[in-house]
Nucleic acid binder design. Structure first.
Lengths: 107, 107
DNA sequence: GACCCTATTATTAGAGC
DNA sequence: GGCTCTAATAATAGGGT
C-alpha cells in the first residue's frame, strides 16, 4: 500500500481520482476546522467537486469570514497588495454551522 | 517531542498558538493546493490570523471559485440545501495567482 | 457513497539556531 | 518571522466489505 510518494499532479484514472477526492476533501476540512479551533481564528473553505457538488466550511459564519475578507481588502488597498481589484464579497447563512456542510447539486 | 495527542481546542499560550498557526496554516494551504491539483477541481481557502493578516488560496481565480459558489447556491436553492440565505458573492483578482498569496494588513 | 484495515508517507510539536 | 531536526502522531493509498 501507498506504493509511491504520491506525486502531486492530476490523477488520470477517474475512479482513483474520485476516491482520492473524497478522502482528501474530508482531511482538508478536518485540518481547516482544527486550525480554526486551535488558533481561535476564522477560516473559510470552498471546494467544488468535478461533478458539481459544493462543499464549504465556515469557521464562524461564511458571512463573517468573507466580510472580514472584504474589509481587509479595502484596508490594504493602498499598500503592498499584489492584486488590487478585489471587490465586494457578500455571503450569509441562515444558520452559521460549526461543522462542514455538504450542499448537494442538482445532478 | 509531540508529548500529547494534540487535543483540538484553543491553545492558551500565545507564543505556542502563533507557532502552531504558522505551521498548520502552511500545511493547510499545501493540502488545499494538492487537492486542487490531484483532483483537477476548484478550491478557495481564506484564513485570518488573530493579528489581522489575511491569507488566501484560489485554485483558479478567487473570482471563478466564488462565482461558481454563487451559481451553485442559486441552483440548489429549491433542494435540500441546509442553509438557504446564501447570497451573492462577488470577488475578482487582477492576477489570478496559482500560489498562495499573503496580503499584509495595516498593523 | 460509507466504513474498515494496514503499511507507508506526511505532518507536526517541541526544541534549537 | 525564518529554517532545521527528531520523534511521535496524523493522514492516506490501496485494498476490501
Amino acid at each position: 500500500m501507498v506504493r509511491q510518494k504520491t506525486q502531486i499532479r492530476k490523477i488520470e484514472n477517474l475512479a482513483a481520482r474520485q476516491v482520492t477526492f473524497s478522502k482528501r476533501r474530508r482531511g482538508l476540512f478536518k485540518k481547516a476546522q482544527e486550525l480554526s479551533t486551535l488558533c481561535d481564528i476564522d477560516v473559510a473553505l470552498i471546494v467544488f467537486s468535478a461533478t458539481g457538488k459544493l462543499f464549504h466550511y465556515p469557521s464562524s459564519s461564511m458571512n463573517q469570514v468573507l466580510e472580514r475578507h472584504r474589509l481587509q481588502s479595502e484596508n490594504v488597498g493602498e499598500l503592498q497588495q499584489p492584486s488590487r481589484e478585489m471587490q465586494v464579497i457578500v455571503c450569509s447563512f441562515a444558520s452559521p454551522s460549526q461543522l462542514p456542510v455538504t450542499v448537494a447539486a442538482k445532478n
